[in-house]
């Protein structure tokens, strides 16, 4: 009979399996991916139409609008992070698999970023053009959005894990996540504004990178603990 010691799987294969499965699921149900992206594109392209065509006003409001739209789009997609796993019983299986739960949580958050955050970063230059942003500002915006969306996916995984057992937990999830997401919004939008004004941006970018590292190291453990509690 098999000895339990022979049965221990490798960490990387488990991590990659979770990421691959979630990306594959998103590929088979593209609506889940396209909804937040569509929301992001709609909000940020409708805004210039409402504010007016003056390039001065657009340059002033552009960074803030893009960042608010990105934050809301990320929040919109978070609710589903663990919901389908909870409903079909896969969450029990993930928790009871021999993989460490924080690694699984990290893999879920990474997959979520690949599905929602990365497309958003890639689409953002198109949106930026409607605000007449110069190329230099666009590159800063993409860097800050990258750090910001990674942090949001990781922070959001904590909130999604805490609210997974509740039906219609979206409002609660937003309330839980928004205070923690405020620094990302403030520093992100401000850094892009500074770039538009030709000021130094490194401080803001460093802050976002540091915040991203902080969430990357701590969020998986919080998510794992939250999952155990909500799955009771």
């Amino acid at each position: 009979m098999n000895q339990p010691t022979l049965n221990m799987p490798s960490l990387s294969s488990g991590f990659l399996s979770v990421v691959r499965r979630d990306v594959l699921l998103a590929w088979k149900r593209p609506g889940d991916v396209l909804n937040p992206l569509f929301f992001f594109a709609m909000v940020s392209t409708l805004f210039p139409l409402a504010v007016g065509p003056s390039s001065e006003e657009l340059a002033f409001s552009g960074p803030g609008v893009v960042w608010v739209a990105a934050l809301l789009a990320a929040l919109l997609s978070l609710n589903s992070l663990f919901m389908s796993d909870f409903e079909d019983g896969s969450l029990d299986q993930l928790i009871l698999s021999p993989q460490p739960l924080p690694m699984t949580a990290l893999a879920k958050a990474l997959a979520h970023w690949l599905i929602t955050g990365l497309p958003l970063v890639l689409v953002s230059p198109l949106v930026a053009i409607t605000f007449q942003m110069p190329a230099q500002t666009i590159s800063v915006m993409m860097v800050t959005l990258t750090f910001g969306t990674v942090s949001l996916s990781l922070l959001g995984s904590i909130g999604a894990a805490l609210t997974v057992g509740l039906h219609r937990g979206t409002a609660l999830l937003s309330l839980l996540i928004l205070p923690l997401a405020m620094p990302i919004l403030i520093f992100g939008a401000r850094t892009v504004s500074l770039a538009a004004a030709d000021d130094a941006v490194s401080a803001g970018v460093y802050f976002l990178a540091a915040y991203c590292m902080l969430t990357l190291t701590l969020a998986p453990f919080a998510t794992a603990a939250a999952l155990r509690i909500s799955n009771e």
């Binding site: 339990p4 079909d88 019983g89 896969s90 029990d92 299986q93 009871l96």
Partner: peptide, 13 residues
């Protein structure tokens, strides 16, 4: 690693 769980839910996608 030594247990496997089967519930009334299928647990697959």
């Amino acid at each position: 690693a030594d247990i496997v769980w089967l519930s009334h839910k299928v647990g697959c996608k």
